[in-house]
Amino acid sequence: MTTTLNGASNNGAHISRKIAAGIYAPIPTFYQPVSEDLDLESFTSHIIRLARGGVRPLIAGSMGEGLHLTHSERITLIQAARAALDKEGFAGVPIIAGTGTGSTRETVELCKEAAVAGADAAIVITSGYFAGVLASNKAALKAYFTEVAEKSPIPVMIYNYPGASGGIDLDSDLITELATESPNLCGVKLTCGNVGKLTRIAATVSEQSFSQLYPRQNPDAPFLVLGGYADFIVPGACANGHGAITGLANVAPYTLVRLFALATAALADPSRLPEAQQLQGIVARADFTIAKAGIAGTKALLERLYGYGGAPRKPLPPFAPEALQTLWEHPHTQELVKVERELAGKA
């Protein structure tokens, strides 16, 4: 079997970086005021800030307003991220790029472009514009991910997000079938928030025999089962899940990485579980509060915390100053910020 090497360094050499369990952040795309041109300085600074905290980047996803980006802008972001990571000593940190679009053809095209630009894996959302046709057609949904995975030069992750795909919600049976039949699939992000679904999928793919019976096309890209929120990292770990891709990691990278480490440690040492549960409570409350603020609210919080953030691209509206003040003063936010500052100060 031929191994597909994913990713490229800033000198053009192809290397394979591990797509491993842990915490990933869907990176916001930052823009220049008025012109809405890409603000690459803020973008790369933010990626390096997260990398220092142990968080890996996902570029041009939902939080990154992938729908609002041109092909060339997505490529520019991937290239800028790879160059910044390599320059700052994070050459081993993988990049996942959002490549899902309306058609199978364009999605494959974007996967190929992302690979050339330096992405190590792609994440593909279900095409939702014609959800009325696709939602009840399991064969068509399966064919979509199967073809994209077969034709993509880099491993592909399934992105199950009913809220952004016309309500299409892939079930655990379909995802498990895809995992066993498509060796270039490297995982699933469950932004459906369904812990039962995570448990059912992980019960198959986390078995030791799975990697032997269904080896991946790229051995550095195993099939991971990742939550799309931060509020079930501990339950997910107990069910043999592999972490999360979560917007909250933009705001509190050290906290999320610490939580995943505690959740993993508790599997081997149950005495660590109370500490993990206590931190999970803080994170879950903050995730519930901050997630409701959406992209604009997250970017506004980053502006408050780190001095960059700005507004989303139109037609998404900016976050109102009074709403930001309310969000900032909320006890769930303040509790998280306190923990994050303590952990960052110890790092």
Rank of each mutant, 00 (worst) to 15 (best):
F232Q: 12
E329T: 13
L69E: 09
Y24P: 11
E147Q: 15
I295Y: 06
G12I: 12
F43T: 10
G61D: 01
I158Y: 06
K87R: 11
H46V: 06
R56K: 13
A347T: 14
E340K: 10
T326Y: 14
E342H: 11
Y214T: 02
H242E: 00
G64S: 11
K314P: 14
T264I: 10
E88C: 10
A261R: 05
L50C: 11
S182H: 04
G281P: 05
A202Q: 03
E329G: 12
F130Y: 15
F145Y: 14
L134M: 15
Q334K: 12
A139G: 13
I175G: 10
E150Q: 15
T180N: 10
T70D: 07
A84C: 01
I125M: 08
L198I: 04
A244E: 02
N194F: 03
T76K: 13
V251H: 09
L224R: 00
L40F: 06
G294V: 01
L50E: 11
A149G: 09
Q334G: 09
L185G: 04
H71L: 12
L85G: 10
S152Q: 07
Q280F: 04
V205D: 00
V188L: 07
A300S: 13
R258W: 02
P315M: 05
F43S: 10
Q208W: 14
E322K: 13
I201Q: 02
S16Q: 08
A239S: 14
E177Q: 14
A284Q: 07
R56F: 09
N218Q: 04
I123S: 06
W328G: 03
V116D: 07
S172N: 14
L85P: 14
W328T: 04
E150N: 13
L178K: 07
C238Y: 07
P57W: 00
H242S: 02
K314V: 13
Q212V: 14
T289I: 10
L185Q: 04
K112D: 12
L85V: 04
E177N: 12
Y159S: 10
G53H: 00
T204N: 04
F288L: 15
A84F: 00
C111N: 11
S271F: 02
P274A: 09
N10H: 12
T204W: 02
P33R: 07
Y159R: 13
G118M: 03
E106A: 05
I233N: 01
N10P: 15
L301V: 07
L302R: 12
G98D: 00
T76W: 12
R82G: 05
N240K: 12
I96R: 06
A131I: 06
L224G: 01
G22M: 02
G281V: 03
T44L: 08
R200G: 03
R258Q: 15
G22L: 01
K292Q: 15
D269C: 08
A80L: 04
E322W: 06
D37M: 11
S165Q: 08
R17L: 05
G307C: 11
R341C: 14
S271V: 14
S35P: 08
T4L: 15
R56W: 07
A252V: 08
H332V: 10
M1T: 14
L305D: 01
E88K: 05
A266V: 02
R216C: 07
Y214G: 02
N6T: 12
L343D: 11
G89R: 00
A135P: 02
L327D: 00
P219M: 02
G118I: 01
Y144R: 11
A81V: 03
G100P: 01
E88L: 08
D287T: 08
Q278N: 13
